[in-house]
Structure formats: C-alpha cells, structure tokens
Amino acid sequence: MPTIICGSLAFDTIMVFQDRFKEHILPDRVHMLNVSFTVPQMRRDFGGCAGNIAYNLKLLGGEPLIVGTVGQDFGPYAQHLQDLGIAQTHIATRSDQYTAQAFITTDLDDNQITAFHPGAMMQAGKNHLAGHMPTDSRWAIVAPDGLDAMVQHLADLHSAGVQTIFDPGQALPLFDGDTLRKAISDADYLSVNDYECGMVQARTGWDLSTLRSKLKALVVTHGEQGSRIYQGAEEIEIPAAKPHAVIDPTGCGDAYRAGLLYGLERNLPWATCGRIASLMGAYKIEIAGTQNHHFTRAEFAQRYQENFAEVLPN
C-alpha cells in the first residue's frame, strides 16, 4: 500500500567559500552591499521535503507516493526517482516554471547565505488529491510546501479518512492562527521540533495540554537529546541514536519522519517507531546531502540493536 508524501521537491546547490564572509563584508557598508565570492567547491543535490522523506522511506522498504509540483528542469530528478523505483504519477509538471531550488553558500565559519526560488512549488495548490486519492493508502504526511497546497492536502486526506502526519517545518511562519488551528484539526498527528512546538503554541493560543488533546499523537524532536512522543496521557522518551560522524544535519528531520511512517505502516508500537526514526536521523547526519546515504536491511538491524539493545521487528 503506498504512503502518500505531500510536500516540496527541489534542487539544492551547495557552494563552499574558502574564506570568511566577515573578511569581505564591511559592517559600515551593509546598506550598499556589493560582493562576489569565488566558490571552488560545489555540489547539486536532490532535495525538497517530499523527495527526502520518500527517499528515506524507500530505503527502509516502504512504498512512497509523492504528491508535488515541479518545473521544466525536473528531468534529472525524475530519472533519479525512476532509478529508485518511486512512483511519479502524482507529480505535476509546470512547463512555464522552474523546479524549486535553494542556492546555499557556506564559509569556513559555517555561516550561510541562502537564496531560495520557490518556482513551481507556488502552484502546488493546483495539484489536488481530491478525485485522485489512491484507494489503498492508509497513511500520509503533509510536509512543507506552498501554503494553499498544505491546507488543501490536509483537508482532502481528512475527508478520505487517511491517517495523516502534519509536518509544518519551515513553512510554519506562513500559517496564521486560524489556518494553523484548522490544519491541526484536519491532521491526526503533528511532528515538530522543540522550537516549532513553542511557535505552534504561541500561534494557536493552545498550551501543550490543549495541543495534545487535539491529536492522536504529538511528536517533538530535541536534536541530540532525542525526541518525545505524546500519545494520550503517555509520554514516550526516544533516545538519540549515535551517529558515526556529524557531517551534515540538513534533512535529518525528513529522515526521522520517514522512520515514523515506516513504523506506523507496520503497526509497530510508538516507542519502536521513534527508535527507527532516531536511527534514520543518525544515518542522514553522517553524509553530506539529503539523499546520499545508504544501508542494507542487515546493517540497519545491527545498528538498531546496538543503539537500543533490542531486536528490530520484521
């Protein structure tokens, strides 16, 4: 049964400036900034929240179905998805737009200057699920995308009775209080980091207890401190899996959410879902880029047992 992954698809162009921005930006001239950086190191990665979640879910053995909107330049990404065996039947192409893309320049102090072009993502609200809903899907996630698309997909999935995780992520500032309250009401589960959880409470006017009462479960990640899953009156502490190296945290949240979906698809207990999700985040942080890590089932099972002193369920 396919799991529906609603969200962005994007190209990430990462450049490394072999110096420090502060050496080239005059503090008293920032109002008339005109600088150029030579970047000898560059890579282009496949990204976007839907693409990242789908990639990680496929690694685990799930069957993701992406719902997203892309542009005329999507060809290499489409081939990448085809090579992975990820269905593209619900990806809409806008021939008059470019695929969303981020251009990120990092200096030697890990400071970043980012430019983001949303492109076709801004038309994602026209890619409706209503009337095109896979009848055999039981699980879905609505991840960051255009605001109207996220609202529409949540409403469509709610009407279809598909169990849905709402993951507002970096799109959270787009929501006003009324829209956010409605979005949470249409979802079954909410997954956020600790900062976003505070932002959700501030924007909705709901305290943590009220927020929990609106959901079947609330998942809050705390970075290297692990995560916490609130289900009913229960609070489940999930330890952070130990990475072999800390290289690139970008996309760790997407990997984590793929782990949740994989466990939920298989009706595993929340504690197990959280541990699978935690280990997925550890795999991701060890590799630069959001879709460049790999593992076999045996390797994953071994690291799961090493980290959590229990056997990974089949």
Rank of each mutant, 00 (worst) to 15 (best):
A282R: 01
H153L: 01
R29C: 05
Q305L: 12
V70N: 01
A120P: 11
D28S: 09
E234Q: 15
Y283T: 01
E63R: 05
P40G: 09
T204C: 15
V67T: 04
A217W: 07
M1W: 13
D107P: 11
T106K: 14
C273Q: 02
A187N: 01
L172R: 05
T114P: 07
D107Y: 11
Y304P: 12
Y195L: 14
I184V: 14
D156M: 02
M199K: 14
R138P: 00
P269F: 08
T89R: 06
S213C: 15
P239H: 10
F175N: 00
K216H: 15
G119C: 10
A54C: 03
L33Y: 12
I66H: 04
Y98F: 10
Q82Y: 11
A155E: 11
T93F: 10
E306M: 06
D107T: 10
S278Q: 11
A277F: 05
G205W: 14
N52R: 05
K214R: 13
F295L: 08
I165Y: 15
D107K: 06
H90M: 13
G274D: 07
T3N: 13
N193F: 03
A288Y: 14
A245I: 03
L26G: 06
Q201D: 09
A298T: 15
P173L: 12
R275M: 03
D186I: 14
A309G: 00
L57F: 02
L60K: 01
L81P: 10
R297N: 11
L264K: 04
I238S: 02
L180I: 09
G259N: 05
H80M: 05
E310M: 06
A171R: 15
Q225R: 09
